[in-house]
């Protein structure tokens, strides 16, 4: 219950900054007043719908996620270059495979991050989310490496504070 105040406060700050960046009016009292009104209405609606929790204001793990995103960025660049090479080769030679990737993350945030990361790296797309596994379509056999997926899952767990190693 006490944490709700933190979630509400972070939500207000983020929405306020978003409004200021998007509108660009910093000094006209009437327009800033409208912004304040908009933020208050958004907050009231969020509370009324019962959505104010760690999921609608996921800012508590932002530092560990920033570290994860840096690693993910490097992976995305590598996978992009690989896929471009494969799809531009004069004689196309691909072997699509479907594999099941086991998922250890339990929280919604961890699972969503893992599935999105798999989809973000080109060459692998999450087709279906199951109870304890993702069905992944991969462009070539080389990309469907269970060890690489296990590594990514472990990093997601660390970022979402689900692992013992964190």
């Amino acid at each position: 219950m006490r944490w709700n105040w933190v979630y509400g406060a972070t939500l207000v700050v983020v929405l306020g900054v978003l409004w200021l960046v998007l509108s660009g009016f910093w000094y006209k009292p009437l327009l800033v007043g409208f912004g304040v009104l908009a933020v208050i209405i958004a907050l009231v609606l969020t509370v009324r719908m019962g959505l104010l929790d760690d999921e609608s204001a996921p800012f508590s793990q932002i530092i560990s996620f920033a570290r994860y995103w840096v690693w993910l960025g490097a992976e995305i660049v590598k996978a992009n270059i690989y896929v471009v090479k494969v799809s531009l080769k004069p004689d196309l030679d691909i072997q699509p495979v479907l594999i099941r990737v086991p998922v250890t993350a339990r929280s919604g945030l961890g699972r969503a991050t893992f599935a999105n990361s798999i989809t973000l790296t080109p060459g692998t797309v999450t087709l279906a989310v199951e109870e304890d596994a993702f069905l992944v379509h991969s462009l070539t056999e080389e990309l469907a490496d269970p060890a690489a997926f296990a590594d990514m899952g472990e990093r997601v767990n660390i970022a979402a504070h689900e692992s013992e190693k964190a």
Binding site: I76, V77, N80, V83, V84, S87, L92, I94, P96, T119, L120, P122, G123, T124, V125, H137, L139
Partner: peptide, 17 residues
């Protein structure tokens, strides 16, 4: 690329990097 699922990967290259 030959089918929908493989084309999806190529479209992903555009969308991300």
């Amino acid at each position: 690329l030959p089918d929908f699922y493989t084309r999806m990967h190529a479209a992903g290259v555009t969308d991300t990097l």
